[in-house]
Simulated assay, not measured.
Amino acid sequence: MPQAPIGSKDTLGDIYYKTYTEEACGDTTHQPVWGLKQKDRFVEFGACRDWYLGSFPLGEFNRQRARTHEGLYRAYIIGEANTRAANHQIVREWRTMVRERADWEKYRERLLKQVQDFEQMKSAFAEDKAAFEAEKKSEEWGCEGLKNKLHAAEELLSNEHAEWKKVCEKDNQRMYVARSKITDLEAQIATLKGKVEKVEADKGR
Protein backbone atom coordinates (compact mmCIF):
# COMPACT_ATOMS: atom_id res chain seq x y z
CA MET A 1 0.00 0.00 0.00
CA PRO A 2 1.44 3.40 -0.94
CA GLN A 3 2.31 5.70 1.92
CA ALA A 4 0.10 8.71 2.56
CA PRO A 5 1.76 12.05 1.96
CA ILE A 6 2.93 13.97 4.99
CA GLY A 7 1.04 17.21 5.53
CA SER A 8 2.14 20.41 7.19
CA LYS A 9 -0.30 19.90 10.05
CA ASP A 10 0.66 16.27 10.72
CA THR A 11 1.69 15.47 14.27
CA LEU A 12 4.67 13.32 15.21
CA GLY A 13 2.23 10.45 15.62
CA ASP A 14 0.88 10.99 12.11
CA ILE A 15 4.39 11.01 10.70
CA TYR A 16 5.25 7.87 12.73
CA TYR A 17 2.39 5.94 11.12
CA LYS A 18 2.77 7.39 7.63
CA THR A 19 6.50 6.65 7.31
CA TYR A 20 6.25 3.01 8.42
CA THR A 21 7.31 0.24 6.04
CA GLU A 22 7.32 -3.41 7.06
CA GLU A 23 10.53 -4.08 5.14
CA ALA A 24 12.46 -1.38 6.99
CA CYS A 25 10.81 -1.37 10.44
CA GLY A 26 8.81 -4.62 10.72
CA ASP A 27 10.97 -6.07 13.53
CA THR A 28 11.40 -2.80 15.41
CA THR A 29 9.69 -2.43 18.79
CA HIS A 30 6.46 -0.43 18.62
CA GLN A 31 6.96 2.89 20.43
CA PRO A 32 3.78 4.99 20.42
CA VAL A 33 4.27 8.71 19.92
CA TRP A 34 1.92 9.91 22.61
CA GLY A 35 1.32 13.30 24.06
CA LEU A 36 -0.10 11.65 27.18
CA LYS A 37 1.12 12.88 30.53
CA GLN A 38 1.30 10.86 33.72
CA LYS A 39 -1.41 13.00 35.28
CA ASP A 40 -3.88 12.41 32.40
CA ARG A 41 -7.12 10.50 33.05
CA PHE A 42 -9.54 8.91 30.62
CA VAL A 43 -12.27 11.39 31.43
CA GLU A 44 -11.04 13.85 28.81
CA PHE A 45 -11.58 13.46 25.08
CA GLY A 46 -8.07 14.55 24.11
CA ALA A 47 -6.32 12.00 26.33
CA CYS A 48 -8.60 9.17 25.16
CA ARG A 49 -8.15 10.14 21.48
CA ASP A 50 -4.37 10.36 21.87
CA TRP A 51 -4.27 6.92 23.50
CA TYR A 52 -6.39 5.42 20.72
CA LEU A 53 -4.31 6.98 17.95
CA GLY A 54 -1.03 5.64 19.31
CA SER A 55 -2.05 2.30 20.86
CA PHE A 56 -1.98 -0.03 17.87
CA PRO A 57 1.19 -1.22 16.13
CA LEU A 58 1.83 0.01 12.63
CA GLY A 59 1.26 -3.37 10.97
CA GLU A 60 -2.28 -3.52 12.39
CA PHE A 61 -2.81 0.13 11.40
CA ASN A 62 -1.96 -0.69 7.79
CA ARG A 63 -4.14 -3.82 7.85
CA GLN A 64 -7.14 -1.81 8.94
CA ARG A 65 -6.31 1.02 6.50
CA ALA A 66 -6.37 -1.51 3.66
CA ARG A 67 -10.01 -2.46 4.40
CA THR A 68 -12.86 -1.05 2.38
CA HIS A 69 -15.45 1.13 4.08
CA GLU A 70 -17.84 -1.83 4.06
CA GLY A 71 -15.19 -4.08 5.57
CA LEU A 72 -14.44 -1.57 8.32
CA TYR A 73 -18.15 -1.17 9.02
CA ARG A 74 -18.69 -4.92 9.29
CA ALA A 75 -15.58 -5.34 11.47
CA TYR A 76 -16.83 -2.55 13.74
CA ILE A 77 -20.31 -4.08 14.10
CA ILE A 78 -18.94 -7.58 14.78
CA GLY A 79 -16.27 -6.32 17.19
CA GLU A 80 -18.66 -4.01 19.05
CA ALA A 81 -21.30 -6.73 19.34
CA ASN A 82 -18.75 -9.20 20.69
CA THR A 83 -17.37 -6.61 23.10
CA ARG A 84 -20.84 -5.76 24.41
CA ALA A 85 -21.78 -9.44 24.70
CA ALA A 86 -18.55 -10.18 26.58
CA ASN A 87 -19.15 -7.20 28.89
CA HIS A 88 -22.70 -8.41 29.52
CA GLN A 89 -21.46 -11.89 30.45
CA ILE A 90 -18.75 -10.42 32.68
CA VAL A 91 -21.38 -8.38 34.53
CA ARG A 92 -23.59 -11.48 34.90
CA GLU A 93 -20.71 -13.56 36.24
CA TRP A 94 -19.21 -10.83 38.39
CA ARG A 95 -21.23 -11.61 41.50
CA THR A 96 -20.58 -15.32 41.04
CA MET A 97 -16.85 -14.65 40.75
CA VAL A 98 -16.98 -12.45 43.85
CA ARG A 99 -18.85 -15.14 45.80
CA GLU A 100 -16.42 -17.80 44.60
CA ARG A 101 -13.56 -15.57 45.65
CA ALA A 102 -15.14 -15.08 49.08
CA ASP A 103 -15.70 -18.84 49.41
CA TRP A 104 -12.11 -19.46 48.38
CA GLU A 105 -10.86 -16.97 50.97
CA LYS A 106 -12.90 -18.74 53.67
CA TYR A 107 -11.55 -22.10 52.51
CA ARG A 108 -8.04 -20.67 52.57
CA GLU A 109 -8.55 -19.41 56.14
CA ARG A 110 -9.87 -22.82 57.21
CA LEU A 111 -6.93 -24.51 55.54
CA LEU A 112 -4.45 -22.18 57.25
CA LYS A 113 -6.19 -22.84 60.57
CA GLN A 114 -5.96 -26.59 59.98
CA VAL A 115 -2.27 -26.25 59.13
CA GLN A 116 -1.72 -24.21 62.31
CA ASP A 117 -3.61 -26.77 64.40
CA PHE A 118 -1.61 -29.57 62.79
CA GLU A 119 1.66 -27.81 63.59
CA GLN A 120 0.56 -27.36 67.21
CA MET A 121 -0.47 -31.02 67.44
CA LYS A 122 2.83 -32.01 65.84
CA SER A 123 4.75 -29.92 68.38
CA ALA A 124 2.72 -31.35 71.29
CA PHE A 125 3.28 -34.88 69.97
CA ALA A 126 7.03 -34.23 69.75
CA GLU A 127 7.03 -33.01 73.37
CA ASP A 128 5.00 -36.03 74.54
CA LYS A 129 7.30 -38.36 72.62
CA ALA A 130 10.38 -36.76 74.19
CA ALA A 131 8.82 -37.06 77.67
CA PHE A 132 7.89 -40.68 76.99
CA GLU A 133 11.40 -41.50 75.78
CA ALA A 134 12.88 -39.82 78.86
CA GLU A 135 10.50 -41.73 81.16
CA LYS A 136 11.20 -44.96 79.32
CA LYS A 137 14.94 -44.41 79.64
CA SER A 138 14.49 -43.59 83.33
CA GLU A 139 12.55 -46.81 83.83
CA GLU A 140 15.21 -48.73 81.94
CA TRP A 141 17.88 -47.18 84.11
CA GLY A 142 15.82 -47.99 87.24
CA CYS A 143 15.36 -51.58 86.10
CA GLU A 144 19.04 -51.82 85.28
CA GLY A 145 19.86 -50.44 88.73
CA LEU A 146 17.65 -53.05 90.39
CA LYS A 147 19.30 -55.75 88.31
CA ASN A 148 22.72 -54.50 89.39
CA LYS A 149 21.62 -54.44 93.05
CA LEU A 150 20.22 -57.96 92.75
CA HIS A 151 23.42 -59.16 91.11
CA ALA A 152 25.48 -57.51 93.86
CA ALA A 153 23.27 -59.08 96.55
CA GLU A 154 23.55 -62.50 94.92
CA GLU A 155 27.31 -62.10 94.64
CA LEU A 156 27.51 -60.98 98.28
CA LEU A 157 25.36 -63.93 99.36
CA SER A 158 27.55 -66.28 97.38
CA ASN A 159 30.67 -64.83 99.01
CA GLU A 160 29.08 -65.03 102.46
CA HIS A 161 28.06 -68.62 101.82
CA ALA A 162 31.59 -69.45 100.74
CA GLU A 163 32.99 -67.74 103.86
CA TRP A 164 30.45 -69.52 106.04
CA LYS A 165 31.42 -72.82 104.46
CA LYS A 166 35.08 -72.09 105.13
CA VAL A 167 34.27 -71.16 108.74
CA CYS A 168 32.24 -74.32 109.14
CA GLU A 169 35.08 -76.38 107.75
CA LYS A 170 37.51 -74.71 110.14
CA ASP A 171 35.07 -75.18 113.03
CA ASN A 172 34.67 -78.82 112.12
CA GLN A 173 38.41 -79.25 112.13
CA ARG A 174 38.65 -77.44 115.47
CA MET A 175 35.83 -79.53 116.91
CA TYR A 176 37.49 -82.70 115.65
CA VAL A 177 40.80 -81.72 117.22
CA ALA A 178 39.06 -80.69 120.44
CA ARG A 179 37.07 -83.90 120.50
CA SER A 180 40.24 -85.90 119.97
CA LYS A 181 41.89 -84.02 122.83
CA ILE A 182 38.85 -84.55 125.02
CA THR A 183 38.86 -88.24 124.19
CA ASP A 184 42.56 -88.44 125.00
CA LEU A 185 42.02 -86.53 128.25
CA GLU A 186 39.11 -88.77 129.16
CA ALA A 187 41.32 -91.79 128.51
CA GLN A 188 44.12 -90.30 130.59
CA ILE A 189 41.66 -89.45 133.38
CA ALA A 190 40.29 -92.97 133.31
CA THR A 191 43.82 -94.36 133.47
CA LEU A 192 44.77 -92.07 136.33
CA LYS A 193 41.54 -92.83 138.11
CA GLY A 194 42.25 -96.51 137.79
CA LYS A 195 45.71 -96.02 139.20
CA VAL A 196 44.36 -93.98 142.11
CA GLU A 197 41.78 -96.59 142.89
CA LYS A 198 44.46 -99.28 142.76
CA VAL A 199 46.72 -97.32 145.10
CA GLU A 200 43.88 -96.79 147.57
CA ALA A 201 43.02 -100.44 147.38
CA ASP A 202 46.60 -101.40 148.13
CA LYS A 203 46.62 -99.06 151.12
CA GLY A 204 43.53 -100.69 152.53
CA ARG A 205 45.11 -104.08 152.66
Rank of each mutant, 00 (worst) to 15 (best):
21 T>M: 08
21 T>L: 11
21 T>F: 08
21 T>P: 00
22 E>S: 14
22 E>N: 12
22 E>R: 14
22 E>A: 13
23 E>Y: 14
23 E>V: 09
23 E>A: 14
23 E>C: 05
24 A>L: 08
24 A>C: 09
25 C>F: 15
25 C>A: 14
25 C>Q: 10
25 C>Y: 09
26 G>E: 08
26 G>A: 09
27 D>M: 10
27 D>V: 13
27 D>C: 03
27 D>I: 03
27 D>K: 10
28 T>A: 12
28 T>Y: 01
28 T>D: 11
28 T>W: 04
28 T>S: 07
29 T>L: 07
29 T>E: 12
30 H>T: 05
30 H>W: 02
30 H>M: 02
30 H>F: 09
30 H>Q: 07
31 Q>W: 04
31 Q>E: 09
32 P>R: 03
32 P>M: 04
32 P>A: 10
32 P>K: 03
32 P>L: 01
33 V>L: 04
33 V>R: 06
33 V>Y: 04
33 V>N: 02
34 W>H: 06
35 G>I: 00
35 G>T: 11
35 G>V: 03
36 L>A: 06
36 L>P: 00
36 L>K: 00
37 K>I: 00
37 K>L: 10
37 K>T: 06
37 K>Q: 15
38 Q>S: 12
38 Q>L: 08
38 Q>D: 14
39 K>M: 05
39 K>C: 07
39 K>P: 00
39 K>L: 06
40 D>A: 05
40 D>P: 01
40 D>M: 05
40 D>R: 08
40 D>W: 02
40 D>L: 07
40 D>K: 08
41 R>M: 11
42 F>C: 13
43 V>S: 14
43 V>A: 10
45 F>C: 15
46 G>T: 09
46 G>E: 14
47 A>F: 01
47 A>S: 15
47 A>R: 09
47 A>E: 11
48 C>P: 05
48 C>H: 04
48 C>D: 08
48 C>Y: 07
49 R>K: 15
50 D>S: 11
50 D>W: 03
51 W>C: 10
51 W>F: 09
52 Y>F: 12
52 Y>G: 05
52 Y>C: 12
52 Y>R: 06
52 Y>P: 01
53 L>R: 05
54 G>D: 03
54 G>N: 00
54 G>E: 00
54 G>H: 07
55 S>K: 12
57 P>N: 15
57 P>V: 05
58 L>T: 03
59 G>P: 04
59 G>F: 12
59 G>W: 01
60 E>Q: 15
61 F>A: 11
61 F>V: 14
61 F>I: 15
62 N>P: 03
62 N>V: 11
63 R>W: 06
63 R>P: 00
63 R>I: 06
63 R>Q: 15
63 R>N: 05
63 R>F: 02
64 Q>S: 11
64 Q>C: 10
64 Q>F: 12
65 R>G: 05
65 R>H: 03
65 R>E: 04
66 A>Y: 05
66 A>Q: 13
66 A>R: 10
66 A>G: 07
66 A>T: 07
67 R>N: 09
67 R>S: 02
67 R>G: 05
67 R>F: 13
68 T>H: 02
68 T>N: 07
70 E>A: 07
70 E>L: 10
71 G>S: 09
71 G>K: 02
